[in-house]
Amino acid sequence: MAGNNPNSTPMNLTLKVWRQKNAKTQGQLVTYNVKEISPDMSFLEMFDVLNEDLLRQGQEPVAFDHDCREGICGMCSMYINGRAHGPEKGTTTCQLHMRKFKDGDTIVVEPWRANAFTVHKDLSTDRSALDRIQQAGGYVSVNTGGVPDANEIPIPKPIADKAFDAATCIQCGACVAACKNASAMLFLSAKVSQLALLPQGKVERKTRVENMLAQHDAEGFGSCTNIGACAAECPVGISLDNIAMLNREYISAKATSDNIG
């Protein structure tokens, strides 16, 4: 059915999918066969097909998180064949297409694994720990209204671009999932860097990094050991430079802030 592509022969695949009723129960991998999968389908569309089949057979569909299906909302997850968001670089699961697989392949699909992310059900996990890290200081404390004119704060373009690069994080949690240490340091560093780079964020930079890191640690994420898997698997290419900047921010905050508690 593909557009101009005549070589889109449908595929048959074997899926091994993690099934788990809820957070309190144990789960296991369950094998399913899916047939007539078009190479033009997205990975999640393949799951739609599986779920429709399961439902028609009176079996329970697989629960998974997804929403925008265009790679920006950060809701989809899935650890596919040992990789966060699957084998294609710079791609979320929703943008991964079946043409990256071959007829007859076996695909193992697991939820994000980290103690800070509990499994809700099947492939859906609780990533609210990331929200709580944001709540610990990922903002500039300005109320609505009473702010200066937007052009009163010139920001050099390279700085603005760098801040933007950090700000594109979609909070999907792939960095945590891929990290051997289940560390959320890449995620944390993206927000800390974005705001530390911009004049607006500099005012609170010390308390921000102290509080956000404290929250990161309290949530039970691991420590960064500079492996780099996070950045390699990040679907939006958040750079490891942000972690260096986070470390710098932390050292300077701890050395100079008034916080003696």
Partner: peptide, 11 residues
């Protein structure tokens, strides 16, 4: 626009 810039939106 003023509000967003004050929040650190990288326009």
């Amino acid at each position: 626009i003023d509000q967003c810039v004050a929040q650190g939106v990288p326009f």
